[in-house]
Design a protein around this nucleic acid. Structure first.
Lengths: 137, 137
DNA sequence: CTAGTTGCAAAGAGTTTGCATGGCG
DNA sequence: CGCCATGCAAACTCTTTGCAACTAG
């Protein structure tokens, strides 16, 4: 969708690809990059382009008004499904093989064709589960 | 979280449980129920309570400013994973058996513990895929 | 040069909240 | 009766947009 390569877009892409799979608000990105020269509206406009191209996932967290943006266009993201820990926010990439198997199984059993880019599976990662276990139960 | 059983909460619960797994905006719900006596703010407040209890999923669609709310607290939703068609919006429940298998596989392979309530898998259902195929390719 | 992109500030819109009123228990 | 929930409207704040200035090609 974009036609020119601007400094601002390069800044944003560098930021996002260096932190693929982490969630940020538009404000956070803008604040981090403002010293290097990008405005909040440029961030929004470029994020919108990326989202339209399916390279970006957006979600709203509970109790929050701001959207969380997550870049999922990296090469290591291309085939894998994303597992996102609700506690620490980290993302795990499911292995390509496992993903392949899931996608095929769902297509066969449910006649449903998964969009790997748009799908994020939420839950708790090993570490956070361990911690929760120590605290509560 | 709620302490009293009000007419408004009953209205909202009836609406949502009768349409489990469909997505609505707060405005849509309020408009549908307004004749029966509920205000937009009551809708928001009750939705917030439900979300906090994990009975409700929220997401923002591309190019839209409004949040989509989806009730996932029904009994048939308890065990199943949700497959949501991006085209027609319908939800398919993955079978309990298949879900169980997936959850266990992911726990074993990735050390990741899926939250079935919070996870929605996006893609295209059989019908919509067929249609898309006829149109384009 | 020409068209796309940026910045700024103002507009826009969904969501939240304060406060008085009404209803559940 | 006391406390919670509702309604209304005002307040909030994130996001979008208009427009002039600036660049990339």
């Amino acid at each position: 969708m974009p036609k020119y390569n601007t400094k601002q877009r390069a800044l944003l892409m560098d930021f996002l690809t260096a932190r693929a799979d982490q969630e940020f608000t538009a404000r956070e990105i803008a604040e981090a990059l403002k010293p290097q020269g990008i405005s909040l509206s440029a961030v929004y406009r470029n994020l919108a382009d990326l989202e339209e191209d399916g390279l970006l996932t957006r979600r709203t967290r509970q109790k929050s008004r701001e959207n969380q943006y997550r870049y999922v266009g990296g090469s290591s993201c291309a085939e894998a499904l994303h597992l996102s820990c609700k506690v620490c926010g980290k993302t795990i990439h499911m292995s390509g093989q496992e993903t392949e198997f899931f996608v095929k199984t769902i297509a066969a059993n449910d006649r449903f064709f998964l969009d790997r880019h748009e799908t994020v599976l939420y839950g708790t990662c090993r570490n956070c589960r361990k911690k929760a276990g120590e605290d509560e139960r």
